[in-house]
Amino acid sequence: MLFINTRPDDRAAALTQALNEVGYQVEALPLLELVAEPFSHALQQLYLELTEVQAIVVVSPTAVDVGMRYLQQAGVQLHQLKSIQWIAVGQTTAQALAKYGIESWVPEVETSEGMLQLPILKKQKDLSKIAFWRGLGGRQFMMQQLQQQGVEILNFVLYHRQCPEQSLIAFPEIVKKISLNQPVAVLISSEASWNYWQQLCNQCPCKAEWVYLVLGTRLAQLLQTAQSQAMQGFNIIQLENLSASEIIQRMSDWKGHV
Score class of each variant (00 low, 15 high):
116 L>G: 04
55 A>T: 04
103 E>N: 13
30 P>M: 05
158 L>T: 12
254 W>T: 10
5 N>R: 05
31 L>Q: 07
115 M>G: 12
146 L>P: 12
201 C>Y: 10
250 R>W: 05
181 N>D: 08
234 F>T: 02
117 Q>H: 15
88 A>E: 13
37 E>V: 13
78 L>H: 06
160 H>S: 11
241 N>M: 07
130 I>H: 08
1 M>A: 10
242 L>C: 10
111 T>L: 12
14 A>G: 09
175 V>H: 04
38 P>L: 04
169 I>N: 03
94 A>G: 09
18 A>G: 04
138 G>V: 00
133 W>S: 01
76 V>Y: 09
51 T>W: 13
48 L>I: 11
89 V>T: 12
257 H>Y: 10
86 W>E: 01
148 Q>N: 13
206 C>G: 15
187 L>A: 02
165 E>S: 13
123 K>S: 12
126 D>W: 06
173 E>F: 00
257 H>L: 15
214 V>I: 09
243 S>I: 10
18 A>M: 08
212 Y>K: 00
227 Q>W: 01
55 A>W: 00
213 L>C: 06
129 K>E: 03
66 V>D: 02
189 S>N: 07
99 K>R: 15
129 K>I: 00
5 N>M: 02
162 Q>M: 12
199 Q>V: 07
203 Q>A: 14
130 I>P: 10
172 P>L: 02
201 C>R: 15
185 A>V: 00
